[in-house]
Simulated assay, not measured.
Amino acid sequence: MGKFREISICVALAVSQVSAAAAQEGRLTVELNKFESAEGGGCRAFFLFRNETGMALEQFEMSLAVLDQGGVIDRLLTIDAAPLPAHRTTLKLFEIPGLGCDAVSEILMHDIPACKPQNADPVDCYSFLSLSSKASARLVE
């Protein structure tokens, strides 16, 4: 039983090291690409996820704070962007209900509640995350 336990620990360490090494290969870029008015006065946000980490992410959630033109937090949103295949760019659309696009000055990524590569333990996405924006609002952490 002792040998089996040692092998299991070695396998777990090897998987963690492979995940960490893969994360060092590249970045996960989250780009707020554009806004578009949605029905009912809301705003549709287009995000591009460029996953150059070498890991397919089966879980990736972002907690976002949406700030109005005065810099005041208008609302908090949690978005599930998974799955994010490795070495691919993925487009995801998210609705910000009841708030016009011109009312958004900034989107703050204040937490990543879930970041898990396929067939591996969760990882710290902040270590390889990069944010950018081409929209009228900034995307910051």
Rank of each mutant, 00 (worst) to 15 (best):
R75C: 05
K92V: 13
A103T: 13
G40W: 09
Q59M: 11
P83E: 08
L93Y: 15
K34G: 15
K116D: 05
L57V: 00
E36D: 13
P113R: 00
E95S: 01
V30I: 13
H87Q: 14
F47Y: 00
S105T: 05
E58W: 05
E31F: 13
E52S: 10
E58K: 01
R88L: 06
L99F: 09
L57G: 01
E106A: 13
R44L: 07
F46V: 14
M109Q: 13
G26D: 00
L77R: 12
H110W: 04
T53I: 01
I79V: 15
L84W: 00
E36H: 13
S105G: 09
L48K: 12
E31K: 14
A81P: 12
L28K: 09
L108R: 10
F49H: 08
S105F: 10
G70N: 11
K92R: 12
E36W: 15
D80V: 07
L57I: 02
K92I: 11
E58N: 06
C115N: 07
S37C: 12
C43F: 01
E61L: 09
L76N: 07
L93D: 15
L57K: 07
R27D: 15
M62K: 08
I79H: 13
N119T: 06
T90C: 04
V66K: 03
S37T: 14
S37K: 07
L64K: 03
L67A: 06
F60D: 00
G41Y: 03
D80I: 08
K92T: 12
G42W: 02
A120W: 00
F35L: 09
G98N: 02
L99G: 01
E52L: 14
P85Q: 02
Q59F: 09
G98D: 04
A82K: 03
R44M: 01
I79F: 14
D102W: 04
V30M: 13
A81W: 09
Q69K: 12
L91C: 10
E61Q: 09
E36P: 15
L32T: 11
D102S: 08
D111M: 04
E58V: 03
